[in-house]
């Protein structure tokens, strides 16, 4: 029998961790291990299907951090531990972590954009010898919107961690957009480095420009694209930009390629 990639399989929800009113992390029983930055197609029969990045992984499980924004995500929020969620994947390429070894690394993420970089950040936390240094700038709208508080606290002990709120002034956080803090990272004094930017399209656009302004080379910047996806396997056509299919060649792209090639 030929393999049918479009039919998802049920997986049990092991537990649900609530971060904010609109964001939860679902731990789902699953033996397939995703690579850093890969995504799965999650679905609930009756409602629909959508791409969601793996935000965590461990023995026998994968985690998804989901923002409740629409039909499917709302229906997922109605589930409880023990219920089934349907999966297929993992799909897409990965962050080129091999290339990050022995160099400085700057990760800039906004909101749920922290989800796709989390497995990678945890990897560097567990193996602090791999990168020369790790800087993370993570931005949230306000204090209520802050995700992964435990992880952020944990990362502070080993990484240069800046957590910033768009305009709110709150004890323990910086204030201002992520772009306002990029200047604090000594990019110019890095020997060799990489920059990963994940977040809403506008945020990625301005953060990349700001990095370049601060001396970064475009070819050292990596971004993760978000496109509507109905298949994840190069068939439905939704994620196509020019001759590239984001679900196949992405979601991670080098900024110097993406900037000119991936125009809508």
């Amino acid at each position: 029998m030929e393999q049918n990639v479009l039919v998802p399989q049920p997986h049990r929800i092991l537990n649900i961790r609530r971060h904010t009113k609109t964001e939860c992390t679902f731990r789902v029983a699953c033996d397939t291990e995703p690579g850093f930055g890969q995504f799965f197609m999650l679905s609930l029969p009756k409602v629909g299907e959508a791409p969601i990045s793996a935000s965590g992984k461990g023995r026998g499980y994968v985690e998804f951090t989901i923002r409740n924004v629409g039909l499917l995500t709302q229906a997922i929020f109605d589930l409880e531990p023990g219920n089934s969620i349907f999966l297929r994947g993992p799909y897409g390429n990965q962050f080129p972590v091999k290339q990050f070894e022995n160099k400085d690394l700057l990760i800039i993420c906004g909101g749920t954009g922290m989800a796709p970089i989390l497995t990678m950040a945890n990897h560097f936390y567990d193996h602090p010898e791999v990168c020369k240094s790790v800087h993370i700038i993570s931005g949230f709208k306000n204090a209520d919107a802050v995700l992964f508080r435990d992880e952020i606290e944990k990362f502070q002990s080993r990484f240069h961690m800046i957590t910033t709120l768009d305009s709110e002034v709150v004890e323990g956080f910086e204030t201002g957009m992520v772009t306002a803090h990029i200047g604090k990272v000594p990019i110019r004094s890095f020997d060799d480095y990489n920059i990963v930017i994940v977040g809403p399209p506008v945020m990625m656009h301005f953060a990349a420009l700001e990095c370049v302004k601060n001396g970064a080379e475009e070819s050292k910047i990596w971004v993760s694209f978000e496109r509507k996806m109905c298949c994840g396997v190069g068939k439905c056509g939704h994620c196509k930009i020019h001759d590239t299919y984001v679900c196949l060649e992405g979601p991670v792209f080098n900024y110097s390629d993406a900037k000119d090639k991936l125009m809508d």
Partner: peptide, 15 residues
């Protein structure tokens, strides 16, 4: 090309 080749996977319904 789209259904059988793209992404190195073939779409079984089409195939």
């Amino acid at each position: 090309n789209m259904f059988l080749a793209n992404g190195g996977m073939s779409d079984v319904y089409y195939k």
